[in-house]
């Protein structure tokens, strides 16, 4: 059973040595003399930029392999028959929420922090699953 689990398991590493994420202005090598706060602020900034990049580019990280996706909830349709809770919609909403939480955390460390221009506080009205 242990062997089977090992075989089935996929590595958490994605891509090869040369497939890297470049975020403009955000190097991924840090000096070792950062304070804990500087380090946390930098990582938060990086995470905010990364989520923003996904939302802007539409490259939401949805796996093309259905086996790797979570099960879909019951569909919800609008009055004109359009599906509201598509996987893309749900993923975008999750990313918006994630970014919102990151921005809130960042603002507790750095009250001067300016969120990305396309950042909106998530609306209160939502489609429930």
């Amino acid at each position: 059973l242990e062997d089977e689990r090992r075989r089935k398991r996929r590595s958490r590493w994605a891509g090869g040595e040369h497939e890297k994420i470049f975020i403009p202005g955000m190097p991924t090598i840090l000096p070792c003399n950062l304070s804990k706060e500087q380090e946390e602020a930098y990582l938060l900034q990086l995470q905010i930029e990364e989520v923003s990049r996904k939302l802007r580019s539409g490259d939401l990280g949805i796996s093309p392999n259905p086996e790797e996706r979570s099960p879909s909830p019951e569909p919800i349709y609008s009055s004109d028959g359009k599906r509201l809770n598509t996987r893309e919609f749900r993923t975008r909403r999750r990313l918006e929420e994630e970014r919102h939480n990151l921005v809130l955390r960042m603002q507790t460390i750095n009250p001067e922090f300016k969120p990305p221009v396309d950042y909106n506080r998530p609306p209160v009205i939502r489609v429930s699953d």
Binding site: R12, W13, A14, G15, E17, E19, K20, I21, F22, I23, T28, I29, L30, P31, C32, L34, L43, L46, Q47, E50, G61
Partner: peptide
């Protein structure tokens, strides 16, 4: 460090630094 920095692990961007 050269090989791993900027790679993706669990869909997150790996950041590295040397440690004492």
């Amino acid at each position: 460090q050269q090989a791993l920095t900027g790679r993706k692990f669990s869909n997150r961007v790996v950041v590295t630094s040397y440690f004492d």
